[in-house]
Write a protein that binds this DNA or RNA. Structure first.
Length: 318
DNA sequence: AGCTTAACCTGAGAGC
DNA sequence: TGCTCTCAGGTTAAGC
């Protein structure tokens, strides 16, 4: 279940392996994996041929390859190959002779500067993810000012695909604004976890890290966002940032072998989870304080929420 | 307009 | 064994 740390691991892997390569051709094996692309899978295949990969960028759970139609990198001609991993998406870089994966959906045939052939493969069992080509817009910082690219290596920060423009900045973004998140929290009647999962408020957070951050901050998922104090909000957002940074160092969380990084290696952060998926197990914080409480799983938004019934008490009236 | 819910999708595992 | 049911959940369109 890729969240921000997993997507960042994939982005970094792509950046390390395929920058400067040319897309020779593309084969879409399942048209459902090409999303919101006008012209459909055939146009998608044709439009990508001949493009140069100049950067790999990310916001929240969206990542994209910055493409130029010549190696010179004429900024007016940039396009984005947007990738969302959904629930089970993987990006694999392999030599062409490697056996096809069972759920291979899209093959991008690459030629390296050394004139060798490589493939970037998009594999996705549940088909919640996909790819599409998109135009790019200038990004703005917290005050609405356009972000300038001081060098060609910063173009990934200064441009954003049109379809990703509505996604809020994530906690690892240099322009992430605590005040903007806080302002949105005060304007809604929704519970705090609903906001953490709302990608237009704060991006990159999924069910796993939302539960982990709420456990760390000792906050119940249904607590109305506007009732959090400024101090609680700060602790919670610091916890979100913290679990993401930790997971990033560990290479991303993995639970069912559906997620692997760009080289096909699974993450291992799942061993340090405190709440998510821990139903029936004792709360580790309570145990340190010589108290026994058992993590519970509760239905929430057609999925599950995990919490410690002692550390994360239900707000009055819930 | 703000908020909530259904639908998309496949495979693993449980229960009978 | 083989069938049916439930669960996993990111995103968005549709409904209230």
């Amino acid at each position: 279940m890729p969240e921000l740390p997993e997507v960042e691991t994939v982005r970094a892997g792509i950046a390390e392996h395929v920058l400067g390569f040319v897309i020779e051709s593309v084969q879409v094996h399942d048209a459902r994996s090409v999303r919101r692309h006008l012209g459909g899978a055939t146009d998608f295949e044709e439009a990508l041929s001949g493009a140069f990969i100049v950067d790999a960028a990310r916001r929240g759970k969206y990542l994209w390859l910055l493409l130029a139609d010549s190696a010179r990198g004429d900024a007016s001609a940039f396009l984005a190959l947007v990738i969302h991993l959904g629930m089970s998406g993987q990006v694999l870089i392999k030599e062409p002779h490697f056996e096809q994966e069972k759920h291979l959906k899209i093959t991008v045939n690459l030629r390296t500067p050394q004139n060798q052939q490589l493939q970037m493969r998009f594999v996705d069992q549940r088909i919640f993810g996909g790819m599409f080509l998109d135009s790019l817009l200038p990004t703005v910082d917290g005050s609405g000012t356009e972000v300038a690219a001081a060098s060609s290596s910063e173009l990934g920060l200064a441009l954003i695909p049109q379809a990703v423009a509505h996604i809020a900045r994530d906690p690892l973004d240099p322009h992430f604004s605590y005040d903007q998140v806080r302002a949105k929290m005060l304007k809604t009647s929704s519970g705090i976890k609903r906001l953490l999962l709302d990608q237009s408020v704060i991006s990159g957070v999924g069910n796993i890290y939302a539960d982990e951050a709420l456990w760390l901050a000792k906050i119940h998922y249904k607590k109305p966002a506007k009732t959090l104090t400024a101090a609680q909000t700060r602790i919670l957002l610091d916890a979100v940032t913290g679990v993401m940074q930790e997971a990033l160092v560990a290479g991303g969380t993995s639970f069912d072998a559906l997620y692997v990084n760009v080289n096909g290696q699974s993450g291992y952060f799942d061993r340090s989870l405190n709440a998510y998926g821990q139903a029936g197990k004792p709360c580790s914080r309570c145990r340190k304080e010589d108290r026994t409480s058992i993590i519970v799983r509760e239905p929430f938004m057609n999925r599950s929420s995990y919490r410690c019934p002692h550390c994360q008490r239900a707000p009055r009236g819930i």
